[in-house]
């Protein structure tokens, strides 16, 4: 079980790094983060990680679809899914492996971004709490985005459709906070509840609420579960 998940994840990570797209994406986002970092720092002149991290989370709206678009869509298009699904490999192992591979790449990018807080730590004295909480929040949020992207990738053979579906879905999550102000009644409450922005606000303050943790985990597990069902159902076509 674990062995198969790791085998799939390992292949996925290698194929991320084998692709120039991954390097371009990494370079692009590091550059954007660097730009945000410089802009925020020169604006506020305080060693505070919080504004930087909440800006990170905006960039994830664009980053996550790029990291997940290929995952299952490309295997379905090229036919390698036929090889995988005729091996002694469960659908859930395949889905978890794919997911883990994309999370590993996200972690790699986040590790690269540690460069910015390191500068703060060297030249300033920021609170450690918000730093840890902030990074955990960014990671959880990124992981939920990847789970949503993976689900979208299992719906199609077309990477462009996969990107578009993921982006729209993430945008809806993102904007649901704003929507909730326009709406009223239970719909507004739901919109409020699913708002990822709202969840994220507390974390960089060093506060990790179990409710938020449960929320992110629910999104992740839910998406992975549905993806597994979709991959299994593909066989029926």
């Amino acid at each position: 079980m674990i062995r198969n998940v790791l085998a799939v994840a390992e292949r996925e990570v290698k194929s991320y790094f084998a692709s120039p797209v991954a390097w371009v994406v990494t370079a692009f986002f590091i550059a954007i983060w660097g730009f945000l970092f410089a802009a925020i720092l020169s604006g506020s002149r305080e060693a505070n990680i919080r504004p930087l991290l909440s800006n990170f989370s905006v960039t994830f709206l664009f980053l996550a679809p790029l990291l997940t678009m290929r995952l299952i869509a490309e295997e379905a298009r090229s036919g390698t899914l036929e090889v995988l699904l005729t091996q002694p490999l469960r659908e859930v192992e395949l889905v978890l492996g794919k997911y883990l591979g994309s999370v590993a790449f996200l972690v790699f990018m986040l590790v690269m971004s540690l460069y910015f807080p390191t500068i703060l730590l060297i030249f300033g004295n920021p609170d450690k709490g918000p730093l840890y909480g902030g990074y955990l929040g960014v990671l959880l949020q990124g992981m939920s985005f990847l789970a949503i992207g993976l689900l979208a990738s299992s719906l199609t053979q077309n990477q462009i459709i996969s990107v578009a579906v993921t982006f729209v879905a993430l945008l809806l999550f993102w904007l649901s906070d704003a929507f909730s102000r326009l709406l009223s009644g239970p719909v507004a409450q739901v919109a409020q509840y699913v708002s990822i922005t709202k969840r994220f606000e507390d974390m960089p303050q060093g506060v990790i609420d179990t409710k938020d943790l449960v929320f992110f985990l629910t999104v992740i597990i839910g998406c992975l579960f549905i993806t597994t069902q979709i991959v299994a159902a593909r066989r029926w076509r």
Partner: peptide
Amino acid sequence: GYLPETVPLYPEM
């Protein structure tokens, strides 16, 4: 052991 008709492989590997 199965060899599919289209011989799907991963080009980057």
